[in-house]
């Protein structure tokens, strides 16, 4: 069980994500977008979307720093385990409810506004529910967790990334964290099948592009 979920399953998810993204990008490039419903129900979108996106981006970077950088490295720059615990805990205590509230507003408007509901596909609801669930299990650790879980989980994640999985590390982390990790990887697997593909379309090239772009109809004309 432990071997499957923390040794095999993450790779299944990552493979589904990578292959799925590639197939979707090549196969149906026209459906690769954020599926905005800004046209319907603007006010509720503005509140929910800004609250959710800004906090979830901070949470994402928090995970990157906390999990991908080894403890020794953070120690070396003067970021001790206890400070780390404190910063991550307090940030999580603030951000987890923000994500929950933001998504709650988005879910509520999606279900209560008939126009938004008509333009909703089941996957839109699934991703919202999953991310809310993530905020709950992640928030549980921040509010009630007693051990610095990022130390074993971080080590495990780094093992996964360098293709040397150590599932036994995960054996002793709290159940809430285990659920958080498993559902997290499920979200990775969901990306190609949902609107979440817009992660990969953050318009950074915009800043390098000239304002008025011209394109040729036929390249060799």
């Amino acid at each position: 069980m432990n071997l499957f979920f923390f040794g095999v399953y993450p790779y299944i998810c990552l493979v589904i994500m990578t292959l799925g993204l590639a197939i979707r990008y090549v196969g149906t490039p026209g459906e690769w977008n954020a599926r905005s419903s800004n046209l319907f129900a603007k006010k509720s979108l503005l509140t929910g979307s800004f609250l959710f996106h800004y906090t979830v981006i901070l949470v994402f970077f928090g995970h990157v720093v906390g999990l991908l950088f080894p403890v020794r490295l953070l120690d070396a720059v003067g970021f001790s385990v206890s400070t780390h615990m404190l910063v991550a805990g307090v940030a999580g205590m603030i951000f987890a409810p923000c994500v929950l509230i933001g998504l709650g507003i988005l879910l509520w408007r999606r279900m209560s506004n008939p126009n938004v509901w008509a333009s909703t596909v089941p996957m839109d609801i699934v991703v919202i529910v999953f991310i809310m669930w993530q905020a709950c299990t992640g928030g549980w650790q921040d509010y009630f967790g007693t051990m610095p879980a990022f130390i074993p989980v971080g080590e495990w994640v780094r093992g996964i990334l360098i293709c040397q999985p150590n599932p036994e590390i995960m054996e002793y982390v709290p159940v809430a964290i285990k659920i958080h990790v498993v559902c997290g990887f499920a979200i990775f697997a969901m990306i190609p099948f949902s609107r979440l593909v817009h992660f990969f379309s953050i318009p950074v090239t915009w800043f390098a592009r000239p304002l008025i772009s011209y394109r040729r109809r036929y390249e060799n004309l």
């Binding site: 490039p29 026209g30 977008n33 954020a34 905005s36 379309s201 592009r209 011209y214 394109r215 040729r216």
Partner: peptide, 23 residues
């Protein structure tokens, strides 16, 4: 995302349906 462009040949402004990201 650079989906909208002006055609070099005749200046017609088009929205590339494969590059629109719904921003």
């Amino acid at each position: 995302s650079g989906a909208l462009y002006k055609r070099e040949e005749d200046g017609i402004v088009l929205a590339d349906q494969t590059r629109c990201r719904s921003w």
